[in-house]
Design a protein around this nucleic acid. Structure first.
Lengths: 134, 134
DNA sequence: CTAATTGCAAAAGCTTTGCAGCGCA
DNA sequence: TGCGCTGCAAAGCTTTTGCAATTAG
């Protein structure tokens, strides 16, 4: 009963092979953003017989449980990443495709402020900067 | 030869009925964000015989020409709005679906700063706040 | 005239769902 | 044992594309 198993239990999810494997894959993700298809391929590479439908179902559950975060860059497939507690945003280089993560407390505060000024509170956000080298 | 016709010519696009109608619909959009399907329905309501494929093609061309802007909120259908020159961001209410536009000079400045700190310059961005009423 | 544009239908890409069987607690 | 979970296949939804016919310039 390791740490991941406990995370699953805490989320009210049974500890099953697909869920454990998917968590492991996300943990060891070389680059921190994977599509459902990426994860599905990683599972097949590991000889695990998990269907793509299960991958989607598990990812949806993980997101609901707050274990992972889902991003929709542009209109391609959604990407998922482990929620390591450090909320951050993304910068995508239009020339190289490189994704840089960043975190700005000031921007975070302004987000709250702008929402409050309009009678709302922030429950989530999505900020992507498309950039190119100076 | 009205203003819209000139916009089309300037973009190197022939002045055709579907393109004129779609521009008009976007101009008179009650709420400023319409999906391709919304536009398609508006055309059918106006008894215009335009296919959904043409709607998508025209919207893609308009975006390339800088006449309109396309947004992908969450993972639903993309929404389009006329580019009225005023850059702004969006706040989407998770309970009512209402979309509020806002513009923060401070956030804009911070975007530039963060990019520069990482050796980049901003060429575009996408910021959506998911909010709920206070 | 002729290259651009269009409608239709089919296909593509991503994601969800129905269902019967399997497995964790 | 019982309900949750899973794989498979099929369906769903948004968007794109092939093609022959039409049209703007």
């Amino acid at each position: 009963m390791n740490h991941n198993d406990q995370e699953l239990k805490k989320a009210g999810l049974k500890v099953t092979l697909p869920r454990i494997k998917i968590l492991q894959i996300l943990e060891s993700a070389p680059e921190w953003h994977m599509t459902a298809e990426d994860i599905y391929q990683a599972l097949r590479d590991a000889e695990e017989d998990v269907g793509i439908a299960t991958v989607y179902r598990v990812l949806t559950q993980f997101e609901a449980a707050g274990l992972i975060t889902r991003h929709s860059f542009d209109n391609g497939p959604a990407v998922y990443e482990l929620d390591r507690g450090d909320s951050h945003d993304h910068m995508v280089c239009t020339e190289t495709g490189r994704v840089v993560e960043f975190h700005s407390v000031e921007i975070e505060e302004l987000r709250e402020k702008v929402a409050k000024d309009n009678g709302f509170q922030v429950v989530g956000h999505n900020l992507v900067l498309y950039v190119k080298p100076l």
